[in-house]
Design a binder for these strands. Structure first.
Lengths: 351, 351
DNA sequence: GTCCTTCACTGAAGCGAGTCAGTGAAACGT
DNA sequence: ACGTTTCACTGACTCGCTTCAGTGAAGGAC
C-alpha cells in the first residue's frame, strides 16, 4: 500500500467488498495506516494496562483510527469476549405508558454514559418467548418481574451472567432490585390521612398483568394504614370502562361495606377514570371523595379537578439501576438504594 | 470422546471454561455428538440448499443439537454474515405513550414471526447520538423521522444497508414508509363535517418534538376541509397546562378570529385536556364545542363526556412495516400499503 | 473395464477482534 | 564486558460460525 500519510491527501474512500458492499475499516486497516501491528492497535485503542507503548505511537494509532473513522466490530468483540456492551430490557406484555417510556429514556441515558448500549425488547404476549438474548448476547438483562426458575436457567445456560428484576423481593438468592414501589403507596396513604381521612379505598387495576407493579403499591398503602392506626383499605378493582368505574364507585360509596372518603389509585389513569366517574354520579371531588394517583402523567395537570398524585424521580431511579448493574458486572457490591426522596407528592385539587 | 449416544445416558452437563464460566455448546460439540463434521452441522441446521445430505444424517444432527440445547452464537454469525437478525427501532426523544408502546409490541410480534429480533433504543435527548447500530449491527434500522443526510451516511458506512423512516414523504430517493397519518386527520374532519360543523379548529401539540407526527395529521384535516368546501382549520397550539388549555379555548371561541364549533385534536391527550378545560369554562361538549381525538387511549372511554376518537389498527400497520422491511432486505419490491380500512372512528359522546 | 457423475461428506480458510508468549534492541548494574 | 531487565513491539492463536473447494466411494454409461 502506498503511504499516503506523507502526502496531504487523506484518502478515506471506504473500501468495497467484492460484492460491491461497503466495507467498514478494520483494525488491520488502522494498523497499516499507522505502520504498526494489529496487536498494537488493539492495545492502544483499549488502553490495555501493563503495555509499554510510547505516546508517539499511541498518537499515530489514534490519528489513523480517527482518519479512517474506525470503530471496532461489535460482533467480533462479542465473539471473543463472550458478551456485548448491550444491556437488554425485557418489556412486559402489559401496556406500556409514559412512565415506562420515561424509564427507558433515563435508563438508556444512564447506561449510555457508562459505555453500555441499552435496548428494549417487547416480549410478545402471543408467542412463546424467543430467546432474544441469544440474538444479542447482552452483558445483562433487566426484567420487570422476576424470571421463572426455568427461564433464569436458560439465560444462564446461554452464557448471560447477570439478570436483574426491577420488582420482587430482594430475597437471599434473588437478583431483584426491589425498586421501592411501596413507597408510592405509603405516600398516598400518608397524604390522605394527613387531610383527616380515616377510611381509605384502593383502586386496584383490572389488568391481571400488572399485579407485580400494583401489589407493592397496595402493600405500601396497607402498611401506612396499619402504622397510622387506620382500618385496612377497601380494595376494589377498577376496570377502565364507564360501567366498571361506576360499579367501583358504588362500592367505595358503601355498597357492601363501610364507605370510604378517599381513595388511592393504582396510577393516574385509574385515578382520572375515577374522577370522570365521580362527575357522572354527581359526586364532588375532593368533597365527597378524595382521589390521589401515581405517576404524574401530563393529563393529571389538566383534569377537573386537577389530580393530586405521587411522582417519582425516574432519572434518579434509572441511575441507581444502571449503577447497580454495572457494579455487579464488575463483581463489586451493589449500589446503595436511593433514599426516600425520590418520591414526592404533587399536590393539586383532587386530594 | 467416548460415544455416549449408544448408551442411554444423555450427559448434557454444560462444559466449563477454564475460568469456570458456563460454556454453551457449539457447532463442534454437536458435530462430535452426531459423528459428523462441523460443516455438515452447519448445512443441516441452516437447510443450506444444493447440499446432498440424507435424512438419516440430518436426523442425527438435529437430535444431537436438540439434546445439547444448541443454538448458534449470534455473535459468530453476525461476524461472518456481516449483519445480525436484529432490527433496531430508534425511539424519538419525545415522550412515548401507549400508542407507541402498542406499535413496539406489534412490530416485535410481526418481525419475530419472520425470524427477526426486534429491539428498540431510546435516543437520549441530552447526549450526542452514540452509534447504537455499531453495538448491534442490525439488519435494518427503523426511525420515526427521516434521518439527516449525515446520519444516513454514517449508517451506511457502518455497513447497515437498510434504514427506514416511518414518517416523511416517500420521495424519490427517500426510504420512508409514509405511514398514512394524514388519514387520521381526514377522518376527524370528515366526521365533524358530517355532523354539520363548518368551521373547524385544530388543537396542535405544544411540544416541538412531535411536529413530524402532527404535521401529516393537520395536513389531512386541511385536505379534507378543502375538499368539503370548508374554511381552513384554525390551528391553535395547546400546551398541557391549565392556563394553556384555557387560552387555547378562548381562541377557539373566537378571541381573534371566527369561532369554531368543533376541534380536531392532535391526539387523545390533547383532546382530553380540551374536555377538562371546556368544563372549567362551563362550555358544553359537544353542544358548544365538539372535540375529536386520535389514538383511542384507555382514558378516552371513561372521560366525561366520553371521547370520540380515531383508532388505528396498529397490528396491521406493524405487519405492513415488517413485511416491507423484510422484502427490502431480500431485494424484493416493497409491500403494498395497507388500505384506508386501518383507521376507524370510535364514536362516543364528544363529537 | 474404464471414465464420468453423483453422493455424502470433510478440511480449511476466513470474518474482526483480543491476548499471550515471544523477540530484538536499548538501558542498566556490577 | 557480560548478564539482566525494561522497552516497544509483533506473530500467532482463538472465539464460533459459514462456505468454498475438494475427496473418496458408489453408481451409471459406453
Amino acid at each position: 500500500m502506498v503511504d499516503r500519510v506523507a502526502t496531504n491527501v487523506t484518502d478515506v474512500t471506504p473500501a468495497k467488498h467484492s460484492r460491491g458492499r461497503v466495507r467498514r475499516p478494520t483494525a488491520a486497516d488502522v494498523a497499516a495506516r499507522a505502520g504498526v501491528s494489529r496487536a498494537t492497535v488493539s492495545y492502544v485503542l483499549n488502553d490495555t494496562p501493563h503495555q509499554a507503548i510510547p505516546d508517539r505511537t499511541r498518537e499515530r494509532v489514534r490519528a489513523a483510527a480517527a482518519e479512517l473513522g474506525y470503530t471496532p466490530s461489535a460482533a467480533a468483540r462479542a465473539l471473543i469476549t463472550g458478551r456485548s456492551d448491550v444491556i437488554l430490557l425485557l418489556l412486559p406484555d402489559w401496556p406500556i405508558g409514559s412512565t415506562v417510556g420515561h424509564l427507558l429514556e433515563s435508563l438508556s441515558d444512564a447506561l449510555g454514559q457508562q459505555g453500555f448500549t441499552f435496548v428494549a425488547h417487547p416480549r410478545s404476549a402471543g408467542r412463546p418467548t424467543t430467546d432474544v438474548w441469544k440474538a444479542i448476547t447482552p452483558a445483562a438483562v433487566i426484567t420487570f418481574e422476576e424470571l421463572e426458575q426455568v427461564e433464569a436457567e436458560r439465560l444462564r445456560a446461554a452464557g448471560i451472567e447477570l439478570s436483574v428484576a426491577l420488582l420482587g423481593d430482594a430475597g437471599p438468592a434473588a437478583r431483584a432490585m426491589d425498586i421501592p414501589e411501596q413507597r408510592t403507596g405509603r405516600l398516598q396513604a400518608e397524604h390522605l390521612a394527613a387531610s383527616g381521612h380515616r377510611q381509605l379505598g384502593y383502586a386496584w387495576p383490572d389488568d391481571p398483568r400488572v399485579v407485580t407493579f400494583a401489589q407493592p403499591r397496595l402493600d405500601g398503602v396497607r402498611q401506612a394504614c396499619a402504622e397510622l392506626g387506620l382500618d385496612p383499605p377497601t380494595v376494589v378493582p377498577v376496570p377502565l370502562t364507564p360501567d366498571g368505574v361506576q360499579r367501583a364507585l358504588e362500592v367505595f360509596h358503601g355498597a357492601d361495606g363501610p364507605p370510604v372518603s378517599a381513595v388511592c389509585a393504582y396510577n393516574d389513569e385509574v385515578a382520572l377514570a375515577l374522577l370522570a366517574g365521580a362527575r357522572r354520579q354527581g359526586l364532588d371531588v375532593p368533597g365527597d371523595l378524595a382521589v390521589i394517583g401515581v405517576d404524574d402523567i401530563p393529563s393529571a395537570a389538566v383534569s377537573v379537578p386537577a389530580l393530586t398524585t405521587v411522582r417519582a424521580e425516574t432519572a434518579v431511579l434509572a441511575r441507581f439501576i444502571a449503577d447497580s448493574i454495572i457494579r455487579q458486572l464488575d463483581g463489586r457490591p451493589a449500589a446503595e438504594r436511593p433514599g426516600s426522596d425520590i418520591h414526592s407528592i404533587i399536590r393539586r385539587e383532587s386530594a
